[in-house]
Design a protein around this nucleic acid. Structure first.
Lengths: 141, 141
DNA sequence: TTAACACTTAAAGTATACTTGAAGTCAAGA
DNA sequence: TCTTGACTTCAAGTATACTTTAAGTGTTAA
């Protein structure tokens, strides 16, 4: 999880790399999901540790985890010896949620795809002054 | 998109079928994403039309569409002749967003899977009093 | 006839995740 | 030295999507 990389980043660079406004980076730090960023004359200097953490945060956010749950995870991670079971149950729970999410998303994708095909056909029919096709021929085909 | 099905449903039944609280169903109606539900002695009676719409709403919500955008879509749908291009662009936009979402979600799934495997191995190592494995052997393997 | 129950409305409240605003600090260039 | 620009803090504000509350109404069982 760690790296020997000593490269550092300004808030502006991190902001650009993760497509997150500076205010959000400060907010993440405030909530504790991002560890305290050391400062040089008041300015934040991010290290690889923070970059890795931000990557993990983005992952967890993608899966729909709340800030509070993300915080729980990192807290468990820091005290691994006593909390490994908590981490494992949090992760496997999240995995199940994620599997359901993926399956829903794939269904929704098909649905949008169907609608797109249907309305493209409708548009063509209108342009060609033909009769408008029937949705049932497109739906779940 | 329509059905000749004349079966009707109480708010309680719809609530159970879609796993949505009654308050949310009323809220959807209030926002206009669900068309006005006719009432018998003050109680809502949902028809197949509403069920189909709720299914579509769930789909769109899965893809991350906001209530406002969902409303836009249905508004375009109702005035299809003049708004088919708006609908098509909304749908194809949403399709792109969805493709990105799916790919992110699949990456996040892999990441969670990796972490789950890693911490399972850590747990085993701790139980067996062996040395804790290195994350880099598990990460993105 | 009364009580219980399942619904109703309208308005206010809540949770989450930021975002904005005001006022201040620091380093660098003119 | 002065100004500019990019940051800083802290508190308050905002957007979204509901959820809750209080008071009321209509059907049904005792």
């Amino acid at each position: 999880m760690q790296s020997k990389n000593t490269k550092t980043y300004t808030i502006r660079e991190v902001s650009a790399l993760f497509h997150l406004p500076a205010s959000t980076l400060r907010y993440y730090e405030e909530t504790g999901i991002l560890p305290a960023v050391p400062k040089t004359s008041g300015r934040r200097i991010y290290s690889q540790l923070h970059m890795d953490r931000l990557y993990a945060i983005e992952c967890f956010k993608n899966t729909g985890m709340s800030i509070a749950r993300i915080k729980d995870f990192f807290t468990y991670e820091e005290t691994m010896e006593t909390n490994i079971d908590n981490m494992l149950s949090l992760l496997s729970n999240q995995k199940i949620i994620l599997e359901e999410k993926l399956s829903n998303l794939q269904n929704s994708y098909k649905h949008i795809q169907c609608k797109l095909e249907y309305y493209s056909a409708v548009k063509k029919a209108v342009d060609d002054k033909r009769t408008i096709p029937d949705w049932n021929e497109f739906f779940c085909k």
